[in-house]
Amino acid sequence: MGQVDLGRQAALLLLADGRLPAGGYAHSGGLEPAVIAGRVRNMADLEAFLTGRAQTAGLVAAAFAAAACARASRDDLAALPELEAEFDARIPSPELRKVSRDLGRQLQRAMGSIHPHRYFSALGRAPHQPLVMGVAASVLGLGPQDAALAILHDNNAGAAAAAKLMRVDPFEVHAILARATGPLDDLARRAAETADADPADLPAPSAPLADIAAEHHRRADARLFAS
């Protein structure tokens, strides 16, 4: 478990593709709030932002995606409500809980049409995005580490949004993403290691500025991105 099955790499690419029609394009992964607050002004700021986000919100999402994938793979959907509750406890900001549930619902709606499976409706009305990602990975025959990597990749949405929010050279943005590939793989590995752990013990790193900025963003008069 944990290694990419050579026969399934295409499925992982499908799931992680930014063009998967699940509405992710409307979100900047917290970058717009950070730019508006004046905390991300240049490429160095952007890289530190993306690194910190991957290590916090990214790792939490990855761990829960991996855990959901492991449970779905053994047909244990009854364990998902407990994961939902643990995930809620790790997100103090109601706005970020809502964003996660909105994105989860969209992924559920999209995957339910793209690759119908009874698991998608069993997820309930507005499941958190990492749990849907974990279940979707399982349904596509992928493992916990794949699910973790897919959500970590998605969590980097800020990079794509940077082109609209900042004066950037898109090559430099992708240079940041290229440097981040190693750390992202490491995080996915860590997430997969806890896939079968007690949900209470899953990682819970906080990101105080992301929480604060998200609540300000919801009340902003003008914004390009929903979050």
Binding site: R19, P21, A22, G23, A26, R105, Q106, R109
Partner: peptide, 9 residues
């Protein structure tokens, strides 16, 4: 057009 999921929901 390309990704109607949000509107569909």
């Amino acid at each position: 057009r390309d990704d109607v999921t949000m509107n569909l929901i």
